[in-house]
Structure formats: structure tokens, C-alpha cells
């Protein structure tokens, strides 16, 4: 899927619309922590909105509000009627409505992050909802998970393997995970992180910023480039303080 990025959406609004980034993955893998990290790192340079799809209405949204990484008004919670995967794949109407409501209220925006409710390895975002998607795993599920594949692992634009700090404790071999993931992902990127240790999730943020820049290149930035409040005339956000992106696979020593 990652190779096919032709736009299947209705035409973007004049001047472009925000890139819609889906973040999915099993329960407890660190999706919400990643969203918080992305808000923290990208917030200063990009205009953001967040849509959460928690099992219970507002848990994730409340977590993000408490984290204080984004204006609480820019977080919308969507109820999924016990079926988080339905809301991001089979019936995306409520999520689209939330995304568009955010763009209407606070737009133009550069990036809208849609966080799925915790689900299983088969859950992926409809391309009618997410332009790009990240699938988040963590090492504590065992190092065999990437080998098992599933649409999330194989086809997400980015696979993030989180909680690398726990690898020694759970006996997970990151080299094995990296090799297996590469085998099923046909060259699509994999990043290893420990958001607990790196609150900025800098490597993932860098990837997301590149995706936004590519989106602008293709569709034009949301609103007009010269009105962009953060002054990136070349249409590229950049993060002066950011270290180099992590090399992949970046198994921790």
C-alpha cells in the first residue's frame, strides 16, 4: 500500500488540506504516547489537530489534554461503538467528520493525526481517511510479532517498534524483529524507539515532517504558502534542534 499514494480522496480544498496521518496498533503499544511525542516535537512548526478513537470516549483525549502538548480544543474524540477497526476502515464517516470539523474550526492545518483505538494486527486505516499511516508495535509482545505480519505490520507506511528499553527484560531480540519486519515490508521503513526515553520521538517526528513536506510538494500547503505562520518558504518544516534521524534498523545497544 505504501507504494501507491495516488489520491483517492475527493479533491483537496483550494490551497490544499492537511495531511491526515493514521496511527494504529495493538492496545498498550504506545500509540497515545507517540501522538503526544509528535505533538510535542512538531507542534512548534506545524499546525496540528488530533482525533482519538479510544474504546471509551475520552480516555486518550484526556491523556493528551493532561500532557499539555496541544491546545485541548484541537483534540476531538470519536466513539466507535465497540468496533475501533470499523471506525478507521469500514465506516470512516465519523472520523472524517471530526477531521473536517477540526480543519473548519482551526484551519488551515498542516497535519491531522488520527489515533485508532487499540486493536489487533489486522487493523489498518482506510485510505479514504488516512493519507499515511503508522503502525505501532512494542517489543513486549515478543519478537515474533513482525514475522506474523498482518496488514498493519506489512503495509503501514511506517512501522514503529516501541519500548526498545524493555527488550532485555522480555528477552526480545531486536535484530530478529528488524530482519523479520524488513522481510515482510518490502523495503518500507521501520523505526525502533523508546518513547519513554526519548519524549520527542525524534526519528518518527522527522519521518512525519518529511511526509508533510512531500504532501505540500504534491498538493500545496494548506492555506497559502506565503501566509504560513512559521515561515518555511521552501515548504519544508525543519527542526534545528533535532538530532539526525535514527538509522534503521536502529537496534539499541
Amino acid at each position: 500500500m505504501g507504494a501507491i499514494h495516488d489520491d483517492l480522496h475527493e479533491a483537496a480544498a483550494p490551497g490544499g488540506r492537511a495531511l491526515r496521518l493514521g496511527i494504529g496498533g495493538p492496545v498498550g503499544s504506545g500509540k497515545t504516547a507517540l501522538v503526544a511525542a509528535l505533538c510535542r516535537t512538531l507542534g512548534p512548526s506545524l499546525r496540528l489537530g488530533v482525533v482519538t478513537n479510544d474504546i471509551y470516549t475520552t480516555e486518550d483525549a484526556d491523556f493528551l489534554r493532561r500532557a499539555g502538548v496541544i491546545d485541548p480544543e484541537r483534540i476531538m474524540a470519536v466513539q466507535t461503538g465497540c468496533c475501533p477497526h470499523t471506525a478507521i476502515r469500514d465506516d470512516i464517516a465519523a472520523n472524517l467528520d471530526a477531521v473536517e470539523t477540526l480543519e473548519e474550526r482551526f484551519g488551515p492545518l498542516d497535519l491531522v493525526i488520527v489515533e485508532s483505538g487499540g486493536d489487533n494486527l489486522t487493523a489498518t486505516f482506510s485510505r479514504g481517511l488516512a493519507d499515511r499511516q503508522i503502525f505501532v508495535l512494542d517489543v513486549s509482545g515478543g519478537d515474533k510479532v513482525p514475522r506474523k505480519g498482518g496488514p498493519g505490520v506489512t503495509s503501514a507506511d511506517l512501522l514503529v517498534i516501541n519500548k526498545t528499553d524493555l527488550a532485555p527484560l522480555v528477552g526480545a531480540d531486536l535484530t530478529v524483529m528488524s530482519r523479520d519486519a524488513a522481510a515482510v515490508r518490502e523495503g518500507r521503513p521501520v523505526l525502533f524507539t523508546s518513547i519513554r526515553e526519548d519524549k520527542s520521538a525524534h526519528s518518527v517526528a522527522e519521518w512525519a515532517a518529511e511526509m508533510v513536506a512531500a504532501w505540500w510538494h504534491q498538493h500545496g500547503p494548506a492555506g497559502h504558502a506565503h501566509e504560513h505562520p512559521h515561515g518555511h518558504p521552501d515548504g519544508h518544516p525543519h527542526h534545528e534542534d533535532d538530532p539526525e534521524p535514527a538509522v534503521l534498523p536502529a537496534g539499541r545497544e
Binding site: 466513539q79 461503538g81 471506525a87 465506516d91
Partner: peptide, 11 residues
Amino acid sequence: SRLPAGGHAHS
């Protein structure tokens, strides 16, 4: 019920 119009989330 599969009509993608948000009905699945209403009880």
C-alpha cells in the same frame, strides 16, 4: 448496517 455513514456507533 455496512452503509458507511456512522450508524454502527449509535445504540
